[in-house]
Computed example of a mutant assay.
Amino acid sequence: MKSVCLVGVSHVVQSILPLPKMSSQNHCHYDKQMGFFYNISNQKSETWEFGHLIALRVVGCIFCLFILVANVMVITAVITNNRFHYPFYYLVANLAASDFLAGIAYVYLMFNTGSVSHTLTLQQYFLRQGLLDTSLSASLANLLVIALERYISVMNWKVHSNLTKRRVTLLIALVWGISVFMGAVPNLGWNCICSIEQCSMLAPIFSRSYLIFWSVFNLVVFLIMVAIYIRIYAYVRKKTTLLNSHATGSLKRKKTPIKLIKTVMTVLGVFVICWTPGLVVLLLDGLKCERCNLLTFKHWFLLLAILNSVLNPIIYSYKDEEMWATIKNLLRCVCTGTRRQRSSKANKRSDTTLSTEMNTSLRDNEQLKPNQTL
């Protein structure tokens, strides 16, 4: 009797409140490999891979090797040179760390693409895409934090902000926490494994709604950072013009804020140029643009993204003479095996130069008005 009553109650509940989750789980495909999802998205094994995949891997591995080595050199330069022990350079080192992660992600991608993609398990694919998404999120978050740090320092007309090491450490931890979370979002449930009709084409187990959110969010952050740097650059140009008309101090000292800002603006510009096309393609895929022929551009935009991580350490070295001198010194240390002696000499020279510039700055500040000091 009780069982009959329970069955009757369950029928009434289902008629009033249908349970879509229970029915949708019957159509989940957690036991499938990626080939199942690629076939649904009409992505077949590429025929060009047998002739070109080896060349693609060789070129990609060369780029990735440069990315790994160059960014390790940038991080080591920041650690070993006392003149880089400021919030701005700590954040630059963290940006280099995100590029280092991107190099690892690209290496993993190179050997898990083409026909191999169809044999991947769901977790292997989530790992492949998660590494890329985490490195992109880390780069984007780092650039945003650097933009805010530059804004604070420039608006106070200082070369470096007053952020303590503890606050910088917390910012870096926050950047990586957010980045790891953003890279893990699809694996946490925002996917189409249980709703095949919502699957995207470029990322077959990512839902189109996620691609729309991901691309729009990143593009909006791009616009915010560009607006910040336009505001900073306009303010610096105006302030520098006023200082030039009222003081005759050290020209190098007065150009330092502009040089730092130009370096970061160049990095930001390259980042936007290299990543915007790929984000636009993901947005079109999320909007289900069937006439856009998106698969044709997928590999080219991936190489463009790799190029961004290649160019960043080159920009640091080209735009910052002190950074390039430190990196050359480190390379000589590796070759000669006298790293400690050369590092101590470099730090002594750096301390002497820094004290000289500080004395020059103090003499110049006496000639400036209180509200025009650097």
Results as ranks from 00 to 15, higher is better:
Asp99Ala: 05
Lys165Cys: 04
Leu170Pro: 04
Gly51Pro: 03
Arg57Glu: 09
Phe111Gln: 07
Leu143Gln: 05
Leu127Val: 07
Ser161Thr: 10
His160Cys: 10
Leu144Trp: 10
Pro87Asn: 06
Ala105Gln: 04
Leu120Val: 11
Ser139Glu: 06
Leu56Cys: 13
His85Pro: 08
Phe100Arg: 05
Ala97Ser: 13
Gly114Tyr: 02
Asp99Glu: 12
Leu144Ile: 06
His118Cys: 07
Asn156Ala: 14
Val168Arg: 04
Thr113Gly: 14
Leu95Cys: 06
Ile152Asn: 03
Val107Arg: 05
Gly60Asn: 08
Tyr86Cys: 05
Ile62Pro: 10
Ala77Val: 09
Arg128Ile: 10
Val69Trp: 15
Phe66Lys: 01
Tyr151Arg: 07
Ile152Asp: 05
Asn156Thr: 15
Lys158Ser: 11
Lys165Val: 02
Gln123Gly: 13
Phe50His: 15
Ile75Met: 14
Ala96Arg: 04
Val92Tyr: 08
Ile79Trp: 04
Met155Tyr: 06
Asn156Tyr: 12
Thr169Val: 08
Val69Asn: 12
Val78Cys: 08
Val72Asn: 07
Ala105Gly: 04
Asn82Trp: 09
Val74Cys: 09
Leu109Asn: 15
Ala138Leu: 00
Ala55Thr: 15
Cys61Lys: 05
Cys61Asn: 10
Ile104Phe: 08
His118Arg: 03
Tyr89Glu: 01
Val69Met: 15
Ala93Met: 02
Leu170Asn: 12
Ile54Gly: 14
Ile104Cys: 08
Leu122Arg: 07
Ala147Asn: 02
Leu56Tyr: 13
Asp133His: 15
Leu171Gln: 00
Phe63Arg: 06
Cys61Pro: 00
Gly60Phe: 11
Thr121Cys: 06
Leu131Val: 07
Val74Glu: 03
Ile146Val: 13
Ala102Tyr: 03
Phe126Ile: 13
Ser115Pro: 02
Ser137Lys: 02
Phe63Gly: 12
Tyr86Leu: 06
Leu122Pro: 01
Arg166Met: 07
Lys158Ile: 13
Glu149His: 00
Leu143Trp: 00
Val145Gly: 00
Ser98His: 03
Gly51Ile: 02
Ala138Val: 01
Asn81Gln: 10
Glu149Phe: 05
Leu163Thr: 01
Ile146Tyr: 00
Gly114Glu: 06
Leu68Ser: 06
Met155Ala: 13
Thr169Tyr: 14
Ile152Arg: 03
